[in-house]
Design a protein around this nucleic acid. Structure first.
Length: 269
DNA sequence: TAGGCCATCTGGTCCT
DNA sequence: AGGACCAGATGGCCTA
């Protein structure tokens, strides 16, 4: 290879690098646009790329449930769908953004009812059904529907004999690794507790077994932010570890609002 | 210090 | 030949 050819090669490589950088910047811009239409958007605490994609997938799925089945965006199922497969911090963030109110949450055992976990197609073959082949599973705690929102002191209902017809929404099968169950106590703080069932793929609390608790100090904090409905005084916002960014978007989650926001966002891009 | 996340560089492949 | 796309490697930054 002559020196001139080497220089041509080098120049070509530099150009290719610049193009690649530009391409990745475009990709990141698109990802930022996607972040902006997610239920919780914050400039200061950005969702990671993978979490953005997961949340987007869940969001589309949840919204399609709203449109098709009239499910309420304020229902627990909606929150569960949004948080499915997300990391614990992201789940906390989403839950915080959704302003889980003072009313205790009772878990909809969609997944257990449907036997969605561990393979098996979702009931009804939802177009956004899980699993997503090739989508890596989160290597961390996941706020999964079968794990989430156990009330402190809440005794798990008998999920052992679910009716096969009970699940109309087609909860997608879980595509993440087994993680210790996450729970929400009456103050909705999230915490991952060690579980003797960690090695089991399908974790189901025994009837009467208290599922895992949550501590307020593990829930998002918004010490200075203004939350609607006086939520800032709620224990969930006195947390330490997962801080809710002050600029996080607290949205009104009515279906019309969501759809409008999606369309306007699409038009603006 | 380990692990997660990210930006960047790089070489390979496919297409025009 | 050159551009777009992709995936692996690498190093930096941050946090627990």
């Amino acid at each position: 290879m002559t020196k001139a050819r080497q220089e041509r090669f080098r120049a070509r490589r530099i150009k290719a690098n610049a193009r690649e950088r530009s391409r990745m910047h475009g990709l990141n811009n698109a990802l930022d646009n996607l972040r902006r239409v997610m239920p919780c958007y914050s400039k200061t605490q950005k969702l990671s790329k993978i979490e953005t994609l997961r949340l987007a997938r869940n969001y589309i799925w949840a919204l399609s449930e709203v449109l098709e089945n009239g499910q309420s965006t304020e229902s627990h199922g909606f929150v569960e769908m949004l948080c499915k497969g997300l990391s614990q911090p992201t789940s906390n963030l989403v839950a915080g953004c959704l302003q889980l109110g003072p009313t205790p949450l009772i878990l909809n055992k969609l997944e257990d009812k449907c036997g969605g976990q561990g393979g098996g197609d979702s009931v009804g073959g939802h177009p956004l059904s899980y699993p997503s082949p090739g989508l890596p599973s989160p290597p961390y705690g996941s706020l999964e529907a079968s794990h989430v929102l156990h009330m402190k002191g809440f005794k798990a209902p008998a999920f052992d004999n679910p009716s096969p017809n009970e699940c109309s929404s087609g909860t997608p099968p879980y595509d993440g690794p087994l993680t210790p169950p996450l729970s929400i106590s009456s103050n909705f703080a999230l915490k991952q507790e060690p579980s003797p069932h960690e090695s089991e793929r399908n974790y189901t609390p025994h009837p009467g077994q208290h599922a895992h608790y949550l501590s307020a100090h593990h829930f998002p904090t918004n010490t200075a932010g203004s939350l609607p409905g006086g939520a800032q005084s709620h224990p969930i916002f006195q947390a330490s570890r997962y801080e809710l960014p002050l600029d996080v978007a607290f949205e009104s989650f009515t279906p019309s609002h969501l759809v409008t926001r999606l369309f306007t966002s699409t038009e603006s891009t």
